[in-house]
């Protein structure tokens, strides 16, 4: 049995182990569940060091020297020594276990949140600026006919204007649902709110449909892994 066949068999066995919860939560499932959690924790430790702390902190802090095949050493990057101050700051996070000094654990979290929050102005404008612009669609038609087979450039046909109006109405009514969080009085506001709720449902329907496709794609792939890659490919030696 080749290494690939052993690896795939192991994978399929583990997949069945987790899938067994679909029948009932048994000790068989819990065994695999705990292996999965353990592997995740172990790998997180490895990945945290090798992909973040080693590359972004350790190497940046101490610099890197490359040695070519003929033994010539060249400095690939300088050492940025001030980064070593991050170790004690990171250590402050562990003060969460101290009754007296647990407030200090909020300092590294505060720095992380500060870095996130400082970017929100730029993020907001870059995300929504072009979207606000593209939502400002014309709604007054230049001609009262429907869009013909050969539309004339520059004309806004009645059907297109109506479509644009629907677009804007959907956007405003759905958005108003987020803004009007106070008690609504009057037919206009309550009506807009109700329509907003319906429009949101249209959006949620689209999200639901798309999510269904995504989840089914994953189960299709898993079945393909079991039947095509493992059974046909590795065990029966097919494709």
């Amino acid at each position: 049995m080749s290494y690939l066949a052993i690896k795939l068999t192991l994978a399929v066995f583990a997949t069945f182990g987790l899938y067994s919860v679909l029948y009932r939560e048994t000790r068989f499932y819990r065994f695999f569940e705990h292996i999965y959690l353990g592997l995740a924790a172990g790998y997180t430790l490895v990945a945290t060091w090798k992909d973040t702390l080693y590359t972004e902190w350790w190497i940046k802090m101490l610099g890197k020297t490359d040695v070519s095949a003929d033994g010539v050493a060249t400095v690939a990057s300088n050492g940025f020594w001030i980064y070593s101050i991050l170790a004690p700051i990171g250590l402050m996070g562990y003060m969460v276990f101290s009754k007296k000094h647990n407030w200090m654990s909020k300092i590294p979290i505060g720095i992380i949140l500060g870095i996130w929050s400082g970017q929100q102005l730029e993020v907001w404008w870059n995300t929504y600026g072009p979207q606000i612009y593209s939502s400002a669609l014309p709604v007054i038609p230049t001609t009262w006919s429907f869009v013909p087979a050969q539309p004339v450039a520059g004309e806004l046909y009645a059907s297109q204007a109506l479509t644009n109006a629907i677009f804007i109405f959907t956007l405003i009514s759905a958005f108003s649902y987020f803004l009007f969080s106070f008690e609504l009085k009057g037919k206009f506001l309550t009506g807009l709110n109700t329509m907003g709720r319906w429009m949101l449902m249209i959006g949620f329907g689209a999200i639901f449909g798309s999510t269904v496709m995504a989840r089914f794609a994953l189960v299709i792939d898993r079945m393909s892994y079991i039947w095509n890659e493992w059974l046909q490919g590795a065990i029966l030696g097919g494709s």
């Binding site: 995300t127 929504y128 979207q131 939502s135 479509t163 629907i166 677009f167 804007i168 959907t170 956007l171 405003i172 009514s173 759905a174 958005f175 649902y177 987020f178 907003g196 429009m199 949101l200 249209i202 959006g203 949620f204 329907g205 689209a206 999200i207």
Partner: peptide, 12 residues
């Protein structure tokens, strides 16, 4: 005309 603006409103 309906799904995209509705999702855009949610995102807004």
């Amino acid at each position: 005309n309906m799904q995209i603006p509705a999702i855009r409103a949610i995102e807004f």
